[in-house]
């Protein structure tokens, strides 16, 4: 009897794991096969890094080489995009066109749906940062110890969480037709102003004043701090701001999720 109960629990847990795995796998494949997502999310940071980070030859930004500095900022740019688009556009489309309603009519655990998107965005983020670090090592004369790579990758991946949350909130605030435009309008100016394309020290004073109000700035500074190239702000402060943005975004998303659940359609 007890044995039977425990095998049932065991089977249920294995089933749940299988749902999470398949949901994640297909979320990744779905987006990988979608050129508008995979090409823009993967190609732009790589292209920008090659053009602006590597082709101008080697110089130094304070304590680090330009190839390493740009590897971090363009990775941050790419990972932010993977998260914002992966959540924002996907959720807006799937919510607005009824796909999410259909899935919710099936016994799918709602958490699996969101966990799959975190998995997908993380995997894309990993591909981006590892690609740029590889390119920097091969063509930019970067020499990183394994431990350093681990720290950079870890900080950039973990630091992307606020943008997944922000994307999720945008997915609930926008519709299937407006999501891409809205995300771009937030993503691109926010990337530029935080010094992800051109180092913040080289931006006009206006942007340097604006930057500390942007989550992208705190994210980039966390990444740069991990290679000792931050602009001297307190790491704890960056983490606090990013945590705050995560919580507010999740709260907005949660309120809108339950509004969606309570409201009906058709």
């Amino acid at each position: 009897m007890i044995l039977q109960a425990s095998t049932t629990t065991h089977r249920r847990r294995r089933n749940a794991l299988r749902i999470f795995w398949l949901e994640s796998k297909y979320e990744f494949l779905k987006n990988l096969r979608l050129p508008i997502y995979s090409l823009s999310v993967l190609m732009f940071p790589v292209m920008f890094y090659v053009l602006f980070g590597l082709s101008f030859g080697r110089s130094d930004f304070g304590p680090v080489s330009s190839s390493l500095y740009y590897a971090v900022t363009y990775s941050a740019f790419g990972i932010m995009g993977a998260s914002l688009f992966g959540f924002g556009v996907n959720v807006a489309v799937e919510r607005g066109q009824g796909w999410m309603h259909l899935k919710r009519a099936f016994p799918m655990p709602p958490l699996a749906y969101f966990a799959a998107k975190v998995f997908m965005a993380t995997l894309f983020g990993l591909i981006i940062v590892l690609t740029l670090l590889t390119l920097g090592t091969l063509f930019g004369g970067m020499r990183l110890a394994a431990g350093q790579i681990l720290v950079i990758v870890g900080v950039l991946i973990a630091g992307a969480l606020p943008f997944s949350a922000l994307g999720l909130a945008l997915g609930y605030l926008t519709g299937p037709n407006s999501a891409t435009a809205v995300v771009n309008l937030i993503y691109l100016p926010m990337s530029f102003s935080a010094g992800l394309w051109i180092p913040i020290q080289e931006l006009p004073a206006f942007f340097q004043t604006l930057a500390p109000y942007l989550p992208s700035y705190h994210y980039a500074q966390l990444g740069l701090a991990s290679i000792g190239a931050g602009d001297g702000g307190h790491v704890g402060w960056h983490i606090l701001v990013l945590t705050g943005i995560t919580l507010v975004s999740l709260l907005v998303a949660l309120v809108l999720y339950f509004r969606d659940e309570a409201r009906s359609y058709g």
Binding site: L22, Y26, L29, G96, W99, H101
Partner: peptide
Amino acid sequence: AMLQISGVPETLRIREHIELFRSY
């Protein structure tokens, strides 16, 4: 259930869609 919807992911194969829904 079969509902009036659009927005079904277009870049997944028939087999993959079914495999995922079976897992529920």
